[in-house]
C-alpha cells in the first residue's frame, strides 16, 4: 500500500513553505507528522500533486511561556507536549490530553498543528483547545491572523485554515488560581481515537462556578463547546453538575458507526461530562 506519485518539497522556513503553497495552490498539501495525511494518501482518499514537508522547520516545534501564555508551535509533537515541563506545570490538562493520543509511536510523529488542522471528528486535541479557549495563529503570504478555538472547527475535517495558510502556533492562557481542568476519553478499542472525549475547565469563586468551559469531541461531525452545560452551571455550586451534564449532547447529530450507536455516544458524552466536571472541581480544591 503506497501513495500515488507526488512531487516532494522539503522546506526550512515558514516563508518558503508559504511560497510553495501559493505557487501550487490546490495541488499542494503540507506534510507535518504525516500520521493523518499519509494513511489517507495510501488509501488514495487524498492525492496531492505536491507535498510541502515542514518537518525541518525547527522553530515551529518550540514550546515557550510568554507573558502568562503558553505558546506551542504547530510542529510540536504529541510526545513533546506530553513531556514538556512548561505544559505539565501550567496546563496539566493539555499534557494529559496529549498522553492519551494513539500510542507511543504515533505520539512521536503526530503534531498539534496537524491534529487541529486535520480536525478528525474523533481527535483529542480539539476538545482541549475548545475548553482552554486556545488561539490559533495562521500565517499566509499577506501576514498573520489569529482565530479563536470557538471559531476554528467548522465541520467534518474542515477548519478556519484557508488554502495556502499554515497553522504556526497555538496559544493558551496558563490555568490560573481557582481553576482546574480535566480531559477524559472513552477510547475506541481498536483505533485509540476518542469514541467521545470531554475536556472540562472550571473556575470557582468560593464554592460556586465563576466560569465553566466544556469541549466535546467524537460525538458529532466536529468538536464543539457544550454551551447548554456551561450555561446551566453559571453561578451554581457543584451539586448542579449532574443535572447540567445531562444537556451535554443537546442539539448534536450524534455519529453512529459499527462500534458505537449515536445513542451510546450521546450517553457517553453526558456521563463523561459529569465525571470531567466533578474531577475538574476536585482539582481546584486540591
Amino acid at each position: 500500500m503506497f501513495p500515488a506519485s507526488f512531487e516532494y518539497h522539503r522546506v526550512s522556513s515558514v516563508k518558503d513553505a508559504l511560497a510553495l503553497l501559493s505557487q501550487f495552490g490546490d495541488e499542494a498539501k503540507i506534510l507535518a507528522g504525516g500520521h493523518s495525511l499519509l494513511p489517507m494518501m495510501k488509501l488514495r482518499l487524498a492525492q496531492p500533486a505536491h507535498l510541502v514537508d515542514i518537518g525541518a522547520v525547527h522553530e515551529l516545534a518550540q514550546i515557550q511561556e510568554q507573558g502568562g501564555r503558553i505558546l506551542i508551535g504547530g510542529l510540536a509533537t504529541h510526545h513533546s507536549v506530553e513531556t514538556s515541563s512548561i505544559v505539565k506545570a501550567k496546563l496539566p490538562i493539555l499534557a494529559e490530553c496529549a498522553a492519551l493520543i494513539g500510542d507511543i509511536q504515533v505520539r512521536n510523529r503526530g503534531t498539534i498543528g496537524g491534529s487541529l488542522a486535520h480536525a478528525d471528528p474523533a481527535a483529542d486535541y480539539p476538545a482541549a483547545a475548545l475548553a482552554l479557549e486556545a488561539e490559533m495563529t495562521l500565517e499566509n503570504p499577506g501576514g498573520k491572523r489569529k482565530v479563536k478555538a470557538a471559531d476554528f472547527f467548522l465541520d467534518l475535517l474542515t477548519t478556519a485554515v484557508q488554502a495556502g495558510e499554515i497553522l504556526t502556533q497555538v496559544s493558551f492562557a496558563a490555568l490560573g488560581a481557582g481553576t482546574g481542568g480535566v480531559y477524559l476519553k472513552h477510547r475506541h478499542p481498536a483505533s485509540g481515537f476518542a469514541t467521545v472525549g470531554v475536556a472540562a475547565v472550571v473556575t470557582l469563586k468560593g464554592t460556586n462556578f465563576d466560569k465553566v468551559r466544556v469541549g466535546i469531541t467524537g460525538l458529532g461531525a466536529k468538536a464543539f463547546r457544550a454551551s447548554s452545560v456551561e450555561k446551566a452551571l453559571a453561578g451554581k455550586a457543584s451539586d448542579a453538575i449532574a443535572a447540567a451534564a445531562s444537556h451535554a449532547a443537546d442539539g448534536v447529530d450524534a455519529t453512529s458507526d459499527t462500534y458505537a450507536s449515536g445513542e451510546f455516544r450521546a450517553e457517553l458524552a453526558r456521563v463523561y461530562t459529569r465525571r470531567a466536571l466533578e474531577q475538574a472541581v476536585a482539582r481546584v480544591k486540591a
Partner: peptide, 23 residues
Amino acid sequence: ETSICGACTVLINGSAVKSCTIL
C-alpha cells in the same frame, strides 16, 4: 501497512516510530 500493528517499528533518532507511515 496501516499504522496499527507496530510490526514495522524502528527508532528514528532514538524515538520509536511506525515506518509504514513515514516516507
